[in-house]
Computed example of a mutant assay.
Amino acid sequence: MNIFLLYHDYIPITGFACNGELVLTLEEKFMHNDNEPLLDRKSAAKYLRVSPGTLAVWDCTKRYDLKPIKIGRAVRYRRADLDKFIEQRLST
């Protein structure tokens, strides 16, 4: 999924377009497609049992590919990606 295209295709507010079509925020679009809520950094860190600072360092240094989704300044994670990370760590 190309985040760049999604960001430019949708108006960043929830509401209705002139033709009556519902317009979703980018975050709502991600939640709607995957049927699972996105976790913020604090929630993702708690889920992985690490500090939010550790998660930020991992993202910045690309130590682990947790596939963070950046929405403006906000960073979100899919639970499925975090579960995949845990499985990879258990198998090594």
Score class of each variant (00 low, 15 high):
residue 76 R to H: 07
residue 14 T to H: 14
residue 59 D to E: 11
residue 78 R to N: 08
residue 52 P to A: 00
residue 59 D to I: 00
residue 33 N to D: 15
residue 79 R to I: 06
residue 60 C to S: 15
residue 80 A to I: 00
residue 29 K to M: 11
residue 88 Q to V: 06
residue 90 L to Y: 05
residue 86 I to H: 05
residue 82 L to W: 07
residue 35 N to D: 14
residue 13 I to Y: 13
residue 64 Y to P: 01
residue 30 F to G: 06
residue 8 H to I: 10
residue 26 L to C: 11
residue 38 L to N: 06
residue 19 N to L: 13
residue 88 Q to G: 08
residue 70 K to W: 02
residue 15 G to C: 05
residue 50 V to T: 02
residue 45 A to R: 06
residue 46 K to W: 01
residue 62 K to W: 00
residue 7 Y to L: 12
residue 58 W to M: 00
residue 4 F to M: 08
residue 16 F to H: 12
residue 9 D to V: 03
residue 50 V to H: 01
residue 74 A to F: 11
residue 76 R to L: 01
residue 16 F to I: 08
residue 5 L to G: 10
residue 75 V to K: 10
residue 65 D to Y: 02
residue 22 L to E: 10
residue 74 A to H: 13
residue 53 G to W: 01
residue 17 A to Q: 11
residue 86 I to P: 11
residue 75 V to T: 12
residue 5 L to H: 13
residue 25 T to P: 14
residue 38 L to Q: 03
residue 21 E to F: 03
residue 65 D to Q: 03
residue 18 C to T: 13
residue 65 D to R: 01
residue 17 A to F: 09
residue 67 K to F: 01
residue 17 A to L: 15
residue 33 N to I: 13
residue 76 R to N: 01
residue 50 V to A: 01
residue 19 N to Y: 10
residue 83 D to F: 04
residue 65 D to I: 03
residue 67 K to Y: 03
residue 68 P to Y: 04
residue 14 T to S: 15
residue 82 L to A: 10
residue 84 K to T: 10
residue 22 L to Y: 10
residue 64 Y to C: 05
residue 15 G to P: 06
residue 56 A to W: 08
residue 58 W to C: 02
residue 32 H to G: 03
residue 12 P to Y: 00
residue 41 R to M: 07
residue 56 A to F: 03
residue 19 N to G: 10
residue 75 V to E: 04
residue 43 S to N: 12
residue 33 N to Y: 13
residue 39 L to V: 13
residue 42 K to L: 01
residue 85 F to N: 02
residue 72 G to E: 02
residue 24 L to Q: 10
residue 35 N to A: 12
residue 46 K to I: 08
residue 48 L to E: 01
residue 27 E to M: 15
residue 73 R to W: 04
residue 14 T to A: 15
residue 47 Y to C: 07
residue 12 P to V: 04
residue 59 D to A: 09
residue 70 K to M: 08
residue 84 K to I: 02
residue 20 G to F: 01
residue 4 F to E: 08
residue 7 Y to E: 13
residue 37 P to W: 00
residue 64 Y to G: 03
residue 27 E to D: 12
residue 46 K to E: 04
residue 37 P to E: 09
residue 68 P to D: 01
residue 44 A to F: 06
residue 37 P to N: 09
residue 35 N to M: 13
residue 52 P to Q: 02
residue 65 D to G: 03
residue 90 L to M: 12
residue 44 A to L: 05
residue 92 T to M: 13
residue 89 R to V: 03
residue 25 T to L: 08
residue 72 G to S: 05
residue 24 L to V: 15
residue 91 S to I: 14
residue 18 C to F: 14
residue 26 L to W: 02
residue 52 P to W: 06
residue 92 T to E: 15
residue 31 M to C: 15
residue 58 W to T: 05
residue 53 G to A: 14
residue 51 S to V: 11
residue 42 K to G: 02
residue 9 D to C: 11
residue 60 C to D: 07
residue 9 D to A: 11
residue 68 P to C: 07
residue 2 N to F: 04
residue 67 K to R: 12
residue 22 L to I: 14
residue 47 Y to N: 01
residue 91 S to K: 15
residue 56 A to Q: 11
residue 53 G to S: 15
residue 57 V to T: 04
residue 63 R to A: 14
residue 65 D to W: 06
residue 73 R to G: 12
residue 47 Y to G: 04
residue 13 I to L: 14
residue 90 L to V: 11
residue 7 Y to K: 14
residue 53 G to F: 09
residue 82 L to H: 07
residue 51 S to Y: 07
residue 85 F to I: 04
residue 91 S to T: 14
